[in-house]
Design a protein around this nucleic acid. Sequence first.
RNA 1: GCUGGGAUAGCGAAGUGGUCAAACGCAUCAGACUGUAAAUCUGCCGGCUUCGGCCUUCGUAGGUUCGACUCCUACUCCCAGCACCA
Length: 404
Amino acid sequence: MKLSEELQWRGFVAEHTLDQISDLDKAPHNFYWGTDPSADSLHIGHLAALMMCACFVRHGYTPYYLVGGATGQIGDPKDTVERDLKGLDEIEKNKVALAKQIIKVTHSPEGTQLVDNYDWFKDIKFLPFLREIGKAFSMTQLLDRQFVQKRIGEGGSGISYAEFSYTLIQGYDFLHLFRTYNIDLQLCGADQFGNCTSGIHLIKRLENAEANCYSCPLIIDKVTGRKFGKSEGNAVWLDAEKTSIFDFYQFWLNQSDEALEDYFKYFTFIMPEELKQILAEHAKNPSARSGQKRLAEEVTKVVHGEEAAKQATKITALLFGDGKITDLNDSDLDLLAKSFPTTKIGAKLIDILVQTSLASSKGEARKLIASNAISINGIKATEDQVIEKTSLIKRGKNKFAVVR
RNA sequence: GCUGGGAUAGCGAAGUGGUCAAACGCAUCAGACUGUAAAUCUGCCGGCUUCGGCCUUCGUAGGUUCGACUCCUACUCCCAGCACCA
């Protein structure tokens, strides 16, 4: 399968500046993909983009991953409101965290090439920047951008000069990377396409060379119709501290039948032949959720590794399988204790709920008990009680804690 | 710079002196149903609570009042128009 064919099959095709996608098959290029350190973890929106990058890498392309220490100090404008500036300490912290994750998820054998645009922006002087870069941009075009119109128009929330200029910074990145590493292709999510073209424009104008940009569609949650991301508030993080491996696995396990095929293509390395089998198998008996199980396993493997995926699968079997929770042996309990908050026996249920973060306060704990949301070893708890033996506490459908 | 309009909970949006922790919608969370799905219905939905209450919120800081989201003053930010600039 050629690169262009695989991209199309996987649905990794939105806007691009190539004459035709098959141009990508001719010879591998150096490309970059970047993100801003606006949070201390990547989420599954980024994962889709990284999986697209992985496609290119498998076909011989050389990747560079950019963490935007400079761009992160300004913030990519949203089409609604101005972003709050992040503290420099926070940006620094986020940068380190994201770099680590990118290395982990891409796990390329020859080492992942990371760059940080702060490295070249920290020495840039305002006047030379305006003379070289600012002069290359037409104000009319900058103002014509859709989000700018929305922000400054009636009912808009306004936009600062800083955010307005963001695209110049990102455009300069591309130019710099072109000059330094001969990178002439930028991969991005569809929402970044505009910023990418700023770079193409600069390279054309200042280097008289051709560069291209290739974007993948934003992944839409089939259920809610919203994109996956931090600002949507439905983020599923790649950091196990923020979204536990079990929750991550459960997220995929809970996907609808309709979403399966797309998600396999976006988020796993599974190829057409095998996917066909998986889907056929699933269609025979949808309620067995075999497709979701495989999806959850595969994506968890990509992000958290083989061992973690196995454990999540096993835990799920323990909790939702046929066996009784009271039948669990010690090694099962050890495994559960590793994945869920654990506390000692002898305390009251309400305190345990708070200790294990299943409830954020005693008041909430009481409310949850009153609304039938809490069960102990599979039996609904209707009132506060002292937990005196090893138990599995469950809140709602899939939040757990172990008392032992 | 001037004139007018605006800033309310995660988001959107009511509220124009007491009955406001604040209508309504969306989202979240929980329950029923189910395939750990979807749809639907129900409850919750600022924080804490010994469930009696207590505390903190309506851009910020003051003021008037027994009492302010509601009135006044100043400030910050946004929008629109005008002016300035070109």
